[in-house]
């Protein structure tokens, strides 16, 4: 069997002002064709106005088994959230 086209991850900006969001993946021989394919596959219902494509194997991710050590520390920093501080009602909006 001949070589399979690489897999690409597709990110689409749905509306002005929003970030690009991951919507799915597809196969294409190179980035340009991945873009075209993404246009045809993922914006058939007017879902997008900008598309990014990234070859799937170019994405670097944390090992999920390390999630606890990677993401535990901020859990104790409750003071980073505004709800930590009590502001009397009479002080007004802040």
């Amino acid at each position: 069997m001949s070589k399979e086209w690489p897999l690409w991850e597709i990110f689409i900006r749905g509306q002005h002002g929003l970030s690009h969001r991951h919507v799915g993946s597809l196969h294409a021989p190179d980035a340009e064709m991945a873009l075209r394919n993404a246009r045809d596959v993922y914006t058939r219902r007017n879902e997008g106005m900008s598309i990014w494509v990234v070859e799937s194997n170019k994405i670097t991710a944390f090992d999920p088994d390390m999630a606890e050590q990677n993401f535990a520390a901020p859990k104790s920093k409750v003071y980073r959230h505004p709800s930590f501080f009590e502001i009397p009602d009479e002080v007004g909006a802040m």
């Binding site: 597809l26 196969h27 075209r36 394919n37 045809d40 596959v41 058939r44």
Partner: peptide, 11 residues
Amino acid sequence: PVLEEDIAFAN
């Protein structure tokens, strides 16, 4: 010949 093309051609 391939799913992506099937969709594009139908468009």
